[in-house]
Design a binder for these strands. Sequence first.
DNA 1: CCCGATATGCTCACGTAGAGCATAGTCAGA
DNA 2: TCTGACTATGCTCTACGTGAGCATATCGGG
Lengths: 335, 335
Amino acid sequence: MSLQPRVSIGLNAVIVAVTEEVPRILTVLPRASEQGDPAEEALPFGPLDPEHDRTLDRGLRRWVHEQTGLPLGYVEQLYTFGDRDRAPRARRRGLREVSVAYLALVRETSVGVAARWRGWYEFFPWEDWRSGRPDLIDGTIAPALAAWAGSAPDLSTRQERRERTDIVFGLGGAPWDGERVLERYELLYEAYLVPEAWRDREDLAGLPGEEARPVPPGRRPEPLPGRPMAVDHRRLLATALGRLRGKLKYRPVVFELLPPAFTLLQLQRVVEALAGVRLHKQNFRRLVENAGLVEGTGKVDAQTGGRPAELFVFRREVLRERPAPGVGLPHARRV
Amino acid sequence: MSLQPRVSIGLNAVIVAVTEEVPRILTVLPRASEQGDPAEEALPFGPLDPEHDRTLDRGLRRWVHEQTGLPLGYVEQLYTFGDRDRAPRARRRGLREVSVAYLALVRETSVGVAARWRGWYEFFPWEDWRSGRPDLIDGTIAPALAAWAGSAPDLSTRQERRERTDIVFGLGGAPWDGERVLERYELLYEAYLVPEAWRDREDLAGLPGEEARPVPPGRRPEPLPGRPMAVDHRRLLATALGRLRGKLKYRPVVFELLPPAFTLLQLQRVVEALAGVRLHKQNFRRLVENAGLVEGTGKVDAQTGGRPAELFVFRREVLRERPAPGVGLPHARRV
DNA sequence: CCCGATATGCTCACGTAGAGCATAGTCAGA
DNA sequence: TCTGACTATGCTCTACGTGAGCATATCGGG
């Protein structure tokens, strides 16, 4: 019988900005104690000061500011990750690390040297459909998942796996659901198609209770394109992207990522960057204007190269007019 | 300087069932250490066993089953509550109690003696609009909130408070948003209109750092109807109701609360019970049938008193056909 | 002055939601 | 046995939002 492990509680931040039509998140180099492959970056992490941090999100703001100089505006709790095996290296040290993850949206992009911005879709190349359905899906992911499903020992498991594969990746006639980002990542993880799955399995090998789940033998499949992260941080990232995509539709959160005045095309580009799809321009305009989400300022932005675009601002009154104001995405446009 | 407080992590469960058109939640008597007013019930709470509970929700299932004999089916993480002052009595003992709250949906209703079912709207009488807009709102809540808003020292605070009041309670022409359950409860808490606000303020009095927020002097307003709970559990409950109301619309969660076969009216009644509004019957039928959410079984239920109703079952295939299947509420019908 | 590029306005078809009327079965009591 | 109350189920009519694309406005540069 081993010692009862200590429980520690920490905070992770998924800090999002959109620049040049690319959604970006802030990454840091992982703490030495978690260091594995040095190429693996991590999400900012900080402790909770139980005495002085009155609330969890204040604690988060405090250390994010200390570490990166970035003052956070919009902050929202995402999810609490507490699986015993989420941080295998911590488990080896007798520690159960529970992490409360937050999503933060910022406009500024200047950060200190310890942190850097990474394009969101570097981590999830299959999530960006703005240039059409990524070849990666039908060319690589679908066959790999089919092989995984087929490798299950019994029929019902095979069927379950196929069903799940179809639903979350929109295969076999099922529609693509942009919000299922986490489900897709988790499926790839289970199927050992992301490097983290192998890394974690190796890190756990030999621990008590893990005898039944050895590192699968045999040749490993080629890992998918998509940058891995330390610990389970790509999972947090997937949670954040899925949540943000959902929230877009019923809360006016995009405006947290935009300057105070913007053109409708700028707004559309940011929405597209997050949603990962191209939208029909005229319908998008009609939608946001009819919804009362924005109001024109009369001023124009001459940087467009064509007819100057009017500058708009977010219309706060919409909050009292409509129950769930958001940019209800018009249908994706085929390219 | 006081000792650095210990951090503890626990799990709370909001366990929901719907019987006789009443949504109910499971409550228990609070632990002795938190006992205040003996009438104050609590939500089931349990520790996390960091060694053996592989995941948080497994831990939850374990102790819920141990404590109440109830096996949980559908379980979903709600939110993590970690404010320093959420549990003032724990803070006095040098403990920072972080709680991860879960929402669970069950069909069964037989529980042990230590637990009991309570109607959800006993805690939030203003949330049940099935018999029309509750008089409580215009008769009591609106004036009390107006008084609170007017009592702010400076103009901008007064305006902010009025704005918030209007938005969250649907006053002054703003629409009622059924999902803003938490915002409504928090507003009432801030305005000292729920007993918990006074209780917590008193429990905190004298602690370091609390000098600036003394118990407000003067006559206390009559507390609103609505059963208070121990600690911040009414806040967890509000979070759960809001989340469930939202989720209804885009995930087929209602079926977790219904028997395997049900009539469309039963389905409608459960949705109405949760959403807190009456719906137009024919449109509701059309909606769920056209959405492919259910399929008829050919069998009928003769218990209706009129023409027998056909029994339906949930149609699982809908999960692969539509991105966000739920009972998109038809408009509320005036009574 | 024309062309390319972008912004903005407008129309048209189609599906779906809101509302209510009409009809089908069943039961209890006259 | 008939009738009325009651619930289920089907159908229609209208209004409006959305998908799609054409048309026009306004700029800069050759």
